Simulated assay, not measured.
Amino acid sequence: MTEIRFHEMPDGRRIAHRFTPGQGPTLVFLPGYMSDMAGSKATALFDMAVHAGRACLLLDYSGCGQSSGDFADGTLSRWRDEVVALIAAAALDKVVLIGSSMGGWLMLMVAEALPDTVHSMIGIAAAPDFTDWGVAQMDKGLLADGETIYEDNPYGPEPTPTHPGFWADGQANLQLESPIGFDGPVRLLQGQRDAEVPWELALRLSETLRSDDVQVTFIKDGDHRLSRESDLAVLMRTVAELVLARETAA
């Protein structure tokens, strides 16, 4: 098990991460909302990278996993800055961003911030703009008034909170309203039995991306997590194809 290290942000936040060196481009996994680098997809990706001699970076956003901070203070912009800081600290020249659910929104923001560094992206049930399409109008009113809303959590006993700061920041960083200026390869993996993200969103994201090299893979019986062995096999094949494409192009 590669040692967990901590990167200190200017305000003192300590961001937990794991890094294994190797051939590039570096695989960077971006977890979903309230998730961390101990999840099955992140772990499988890291193990694959270690065995294949590939560079890989995992991280916990502030307020999540082993990173310091309060989850209630978390926003997409805050977490984007943490990802960018880790990539800079590790001096990574080329990366493949792999974003799960909310991480699929965050990867678009990181790619915008690092246009010369991000080689390609893989979205796993990517959920850009979910503060807009995934929140009821009544709840939007409560959030706008500064209240936290809570929803049933299908993955645990505690309800899932949406804090007003996160919601407002999400609304300020909507991606699907205008073309997304990324020209590199993008692969989108989407389960059609996903109860959280409508599978049609993958098509909308594909259309919004400026790149012509976008492929959408639907997994008909796949749920939101896409963490079964068969789902992970699809992910690993997708990663391998992008890495090989990068090396062939080089």
Rank of each mutant, 00 (worst) to 15 (best):
L235M: 10
T162V: 04
D139V: 06
D183S: 15
R228N: 12
G134Q: 07
T148V: 14
I15A: 01
L201Y: 00
M121V: 11
L142Y: 10
D139Q: 07
A89N: 07
D129F: 04
F218I: 07
Q66E: 15
A249I: 11
L203N: 06
P179F: 14
A249R: 15
A127V: 05
E241H: 11
G53S: 13
D231L: 04
T217H: 12
I15M: 03
C64T: 07
P31C: 13
W133L: 06
A52H: 08
G103E: 02
D213G: 14
S120C: 10
M121E: 11
P31K: 01
L108G: 11
G191P: 04
E196R: 00
L114W: 07
A172M: 15
G22F: 03
T160V: 10
G74D: 12
I98W: 02
R204A: 10
V83S: 01
D93P: 07
H163P: 08
G99F: 04
E241F: 09
G24C: 05
L106T: 09
A136I: 00
L143W: 08
I219T: 12
T208L: 02
G181C: 12
D169P: 03
R193P: 04
E200N: 11
D145W: 09
L114G: 04
G165A: 03
L86W: 01
M48Q: 09
D129Y: 05
A91D: 15
R204I: 09
S100K: 09
S67L: 02
F6L: 10
E3I: 11
S35C: 15
G22I: 03
L209P: 01
W105V: 02
G156V: 03
S100Q: 12
G134F: 10
E200H: 13
A126I: 00
A245H: 02
A85G: 08
E147N: 07
V28R: 04
E196C: 03
M138D: 15
S227L: 07
K220D: 15
G74P: 06
W167T: 11
L45F: 08
A42Q: 11
W105H: 06
L58E: 11
A111T: 10
A202N: 05
R228T: 14
K41Y: 04
V239R: 10
R14W: 05
R225T: 08
P185T: 05
L189R: 01
D183C: 15
I15P: 00
S35F: 10
G170V: 01
L201N: 05
E200F: 05
M37S: 13
R13A: 10
M109S: 04
V118Q: 06
I15C: 03
S206E: 15
L143Y: 06
V84G: 13
S67C: 01
D221W: 03
T160N: 01
A172T: 15
P198N: 12
G222N: 03
P21D: 06
A195K: 12
Y33F: 14
A125N: 03
D129H: 05
A168V: 12
L86M: 02
L235K: 00
R210E: 14
M34T: 11
G12A: 08
D116P: 01
K41I: 10
G156Q: 01
M107K: 00
T43A: 08
V216R: 06
P25N: 14
D73I: 13
